[in-house]
């Protein structure tokens, strides 16, 4: 019982650690989008599309962590 609880707790801690990087990455992605759109508003549409692609890439790591908590 104790071991099971420890593993369950470690999974959650591991997922929490795994979200730090993607969190920073997504923040930078949004920052870049806002700054770029403020400087060149006519580019906002294309920047938004690119921001989504890179946001999805950064988010992938967090989502893999989310899946791993279910697998193991």
């Amino acid at each position: 019982m104790e071991t099971i609880m420890t593993i369950a707790a470690l999974k959650i801690v591991g997922y929490g650690l795994g979200t730090i990087g993607p969190g920073i990455g997504l923040g930078l992605c949004g920052y870049g989008l806002c700054v770029g759109a403020a400087r060149q508003p006519e580019m906002a549409g294309r920047l938004f599309t690119n921001a989504l692609i890179f946001g999805a890439l950064a988010e992938a790591l967090a989502l893999i962590g989310f899946v791993l908590t279910f697998i193991f």
């Binding site: 999805a56 890439l57 988010e59 992938a60 989502l63 893999i64 989310f66 899946v67």
Partner: peptide, 16 residues
């Protein structure tokens, strides 16, 4: 890799 992982991320993002 990023192409294949799209399948996973699309599904898990919505579900999560």
């Amino acid at each position: 890799f990023s192409l294949v992982i799209r399948l996973l991320t699309l599904a898990v993002r919505l579900y999560g």
